[in-house]
């Protein structure tokens, strides 16, 4: 890893872990998910909740925790901008970016690269 990236990660990781319980997927979509990190979902769902959410809004897998996507929906309603981005179809996770800086990937455009056969954006 380049020195610059290591320095950025040294700032980004503790900050985002503290604020959003970030998992450093390297392709941040927090603004589309009401500032609730979807990688905290045990199923890593980036397009909405699964069908297993409990009646009280808690997670199927961790009964004592709020569903990440219940928080995402509520968070998105409170956002002054990007509110409807929760309706966007999110491309598959690029697992090669795990642990890298999403800030650098955003600036370089690396986090916008989708597999060649993915045309989800065309329809959404």
């Amino acid at each position: 890893m380049r020195v610059l990236e290591r320095l950025v990660v040294a700032v980004e990781k503790p900050l985002k872990e503290a604020v959003w319980d970030c998992r450093m997927c390297g392709q941040c979509i927090l603004h589309s998910t009401g500032l609730s990190c979807p990688m905290r979902c045990p199923k890593n769902l980036r397009n909405g909740p699964c069908g297993g959410v409990r009646a009280n809004g808690n997670c199927e897998v961790y009964p004592d925790k709020r569903c990440v996507w219940v928080e995402a929906w509520e968070g998105s309603r409170r956002m002054p901008v990007f509110k409807d981005h929760i309706e966007h179809l999110q491309k598959p996770v690029d697992w090669q970016l795990q642990g890298t800086s999403s800030w650098i990937n955003l600036v370089s455009g690396r986090d916008h690269e989708a597999p060649k056969g993915w045309e989800g954006h065309a329809r959404s």
Binding site: P42, K43, V93, G117, E119, G120
Partner: peptide, 28 residues
């Protein structure tokens, strides 16, 4: 170990891509 490499929404798009565009997700 649970997999969840892609989610159900993305799999729908992948299946539709195979059908409508005749390609894998890779573009092949």
């Amino acid at each position: 170990r649970r997999i969840y490499d892609i989610d159900s929404m993305q799999l729908i798009e992948v299946a539709a891509g195979m059908r409508d565009r005749g390609t894998y997700l890779s573009g092949r």
